[in-house]
Design a protein around this nucleic acid. Structure first.
Lengths: 150, 150
DNA sequence: GTCAAATAGTTTGATGTAGAAATATTATCG
DNA sequence: CGATAATATTTCTACATCAAACTATTTGAC
């Protein structure tokens, strides 16, 4: 892929890899979004419901951490999910600063309706890679994602 | 990484790879953003200026394509860049539907002030991978990003 | 016990994002 | 030539996103 930048060999290599990584995830997510595998949920809403489904009820702060988003927008996302009846807020009686978020029956039902199709779409997309290629990609991503320990 | 999902082996493998890829790019971008290598530009603004810098003046639609964003928000991004004096709009005399976007002197200066640090940060982040690992990652991303030809 | 610091969540303001409908302009078909 | 289709951009609406300032509550140091 062209980078149109004249730098050292290491710089060229890095930019090239960075661009490929970025384009890969961008177009992968674009294709998934086209297939509309999340029903009418936004990606954030889906991520929150999925976290609650697999990991159980959590405080709002824990949800933020799991979903890797800042606390300030978690409020909005959960506001909207609550409005649609998919989650329920409950203030902790012991520590009244804390708010627990629970999946409602409707939320569970919603997610169970969506999840199989979503997974099928992922499997389909990744089927272009062999098992060992996926493993290789996973390991490289893990290494790069972890970053340097300083 | 735990997926908490009981599926077939292929499903598990896919989800595991998908999660690693997602986390990798998320935390990579988070670390880059922490280092503030884009000055006070937003990622979108930076991407637009960079495209204009490396590829020259373009129509607004071409910028959208290069930056992989929808046309409707390109208007806003370029509005803000124009407000800050980094780009200039110019309506095509021949086809008056078209708007050309040019980098101004201030925009060029801004980008040239930012680019070296940005590249250095990238090189530093990717230096955890060897040259051959980067190549491998790049190839896998290219393959996955391209998707199946249908 | 009281006051300061820490913690959980909300609000606000600026920006980005996508999709759909609207507008303006140009191209094309009959 | 004129109606219609295609193209480029904008507007509108809803949501997401972050940072910073704010409220409420709890904890800890003295």
């Amino acid at each position: 892929m062209p980078t149109h930048y004249s730098g050292t060999r290491a710089e060229m290599r890095t930019l090239d890899t960075f661009i490929k990584l970025t384009r890969c995830t961008n177009s992968l997510f674009a294709r998934l979004s086209e297939q509309n595998t999340l029903g009418d949920l936004t990606p954030s809403q889906f991520a929150v419901l999925e976290a609650l489904y697999h990991l159980g009820s959590m405080t709002q702060g824990e949800v933020s951490t799991k979903v890797l988003k800042s606390g300030s927008n978690m409020t909005t996302v959960i506001d909207n999910l609550e409005r649609d009846g998919f989650v329920r807020r409950e203030r902790d009686a012991k520590d009244r600063r804390v708010i627990y978020v629970h999946l409602t029956g409707a939320g569970k039902k919603k997610l169970e309706a969506i999840l199989p199709g979503h997974i099928a779409a992922l499997v389909e997309e990744f089927s272009i890679l062999s098992a060992s290629e996926m493993e290789m990609l996973g390991n490289l991503c893990k290494k790069l994602g972890k970053g340097k320990i300083k």
